[in-house]
């Protein structure tokens, strides 16, 4: 399959144009001087200025970042533990239920996850707000983290950790000194995935929040329902740029780290074998 025909080139061009043109148009129109989004009225950055003067958006942005930082960190710890259980621990009672609970949230419609968590919080009498959003996001994000981390753990040579144990390491320090550095790239990309999932979530946040906390997607949604606004274009442009830079940057760094880790692991395997 080495010949790139005209058909292939057309498909790739049309496909990537379809994927990227809408985002590009959105970003271009954030620099539009007029209020009407569709009619170009000269270059201007005034919508960015308006955005930064809008207290509601700034507050929501702060809530969102707080939630995403906390939820992605908890999700990474819990998801890594779950991955270790799935890959390392053999049989234990309730294993099928456990793996079912890890995979089910990945295919569960968000409206159902949101509804069920809200009903739980209400029946427990928990005050809803930032705290409940964090709990909700941690729960669905940990499943994504565990999938990412377990796919790396499967290829990991367990004899390395056994060697560390033979050399007198405690299980915890063997994990910290040997396993963790090797699975680190997967853990980091799991964290990043959890972070963006939390950052983007509208549905589950809307269900699980209370009157005290509004996240950025909720603020965007309620503004967008009233129609297109250049201020939202400006905000979107900022968010897309941050995410794109972060993803490209970490994927380059992760690739380098993975190559290095693979080399170390092979060298260590040669030395122990």
């Amino acid at each position: 399959m080495k010949r790139l025909s005209w058909f292939n080139i057309t498909a790739l061009t049309v496909g990537f144009a379809f994927l990227y043109l809408p985002i590009l148009i959105l970003m271009i129109y954030s620099f539009n001087g007029g209020r009407n989004v569709a009619i170009w009225a000269g270059f201007s950055t005034k919508w960015y200025g308006e955005l930064f003067r809008d207290q509601a958006f700034l507050d929501a942005a702060w809530v969102t970042v707080k939630v995403a930082l906390a939820a992605s960190t908890f999700a990474t710890v819990l998801g890594t533990m779950a991955a270790l259980v799935l890959v390392r621990v053999g049989r234990f009672p309730g294993r099928t239920l456990f793996s079912g609970m890890i995979y089910a949230p990945l295919v569960m419609p968000e409206v159902i996850t949101g509804l069920s968590l809200l009903l739980l919080f209400i029946s427990l009498g928990v005050d809803r707000g930032v705290f409940t959003i964090i709990l909700a996001h941690t729960t669905f994000a940990m499943c994504y983290v565990s999938v990412v981390v377990s796919s790396r753990l499967v290829t990991f040579d367990q004899s390395l950790e056994e060697a560390a144990r033979d050399l007198g390491c405690s299980p915890v320090s063997a994990f910290r000194l040997v396993t963790l550095p090797i699975i680190a790239p997967a853990v980091i990309s799991g964290w990043l995935l959890a972070f963006t999932l939390s950052l983007d979530d509208l549905v589950i946040s809307s269900f699980t929040t209370g009157p005290s906390a509004t996240t950025l997607p909720m603020e965007i949604y309620s503004s967008v329902r009233r129609g297109v606004s250049p201020k939202i274009n400006a905000l979107s442009t900022i968010m897309i740029s941050i995410v794109a830079l972060a993803v490209i940057g970490t994927s380059i760094a992760a690739k380098r780290a993975a190559v290095r880790a693979q080399r170390d692991e092979q060298a260590a395997a040669r030395a122990t074998g």
């Binding site: 994927l19 990227y20 809408p22 985002i23 148009i25 959105l26 129109y29 989004v37 569709a38 963006t196 950052l199 983007d200 509208l202 997607p217 965007i220 949604y221 967008v224 129609g227 297109v228 939202i232 274009n233 979107s236 968010m239 897309i240 995410v243 794109a244 993803v247 490209i248």
Partner: peptide, 16 residues
């Protein structure tokens, strides 16, 4: 890459 950017924003882009 588009998978990492917010679903809400990608849908909003089509509104315009």
């Amino acid at each position: 890459l588009p998978f990492w950017t917010s679903l809400l924003i990608r849908v909003y882009a089509w509104m315009g």
